[in-house]
């Protein structure tokens, strides 16, 4: 692989980044080659020291996904950031993906529970096939719906906090796992 092939491959991977970011990074790598040439290093040597473009690109893409999720934490952006992190190392399947899926399932469960409470009046009416309800059951329904609302709102708040925690964990993970990636390469 020569310099142009290397840069082209890197550029292909980095296309997924915002264009101005991609251009800036490509400029930086071009600069690296030029500086190395000035200090008398051969292209082949520079390329072997740099490491595989795919590896570098994966790190950059993961960073960018985490930043994006940090700016607008939604289920989609956070999941993307998690998946990008998992692509960095097999070990992340265990320490990132597994906890993420587990905790997400728990949160989904609580949401389902809240929704059940919210629609409980409808369910009750369907079950008894009548609209003639005693005062007692009306109070019961109001109570259930109230609790349902509280649980739903609470979980929504909690989910936002949870996204925040996930992103912080991913950022931390990036600093730790980085050492593994680089020492493997070297």
């Amino acid at each position: 692989m020569n310099k142009e092939a290397y840069l082209n491959e890197l550029a292909r991977y980095l296309k997924l980044l915002p264009p101005e970011e991609c251009a800036e990074l490509m400029g930086e790598f071009r600069e690296h080659f030029e500086c190395a040439q000035l200090s008398g290093r051969s292209e082949a040597e520079v390329i072997s020291k740099l490491g595989h473009p795919r590896l570098i690109a994966r790190e950059l893409l993961t960073q960018s996904q985490i930043e994006r999720a940090d700016k607008s934490p939604t289920l989609l952006s956070v999941t993307r950031a998690v998946m990008a992190t998992v692509s960095l190392g097999l070990f992340n399947l265990v320490i990132v993906l597994l906890p993420f899926i587990t905790s997400l399932t728990v949160i989904a469960g609580v949401f389902v529970f809240a929704i059940c409470l919210l629609i409980s009046p409808v369910l009750l009416i369907l079950q008894y096939q009548s609209v003639a309800l005693s005062i007692n059951s009306i109070f019961l329904m109001l109570g259930l719906v109230g609790v349902g609302l509280l649980v739903a709102l609470g979980t929504l708040k909690l989910t936002r906090l949870y996204y925040h925690l996930v992103i912080r964990y991913l950022k931390y993970n990036l600093t730790v796992i980085k050492k593994d990636v680089t020492s493997f390469e070297a």
Partner: peptide, 26 residues
């Protein structure tokens, strides 16, 4: 400048030079 940093770091530690740029960016 970037290359200077990469050179200094890779003199001391055995790491793939390319991965220093993502770190700088972060």
């Amino acid at each position: 400048y970037g290359y200077e940093l990469v050179e200094q770091i890779s003199h001391k530690f055995a790491i793939a030079e390319g991965t220093i740029y993502p770190l700088l960016r972060r």
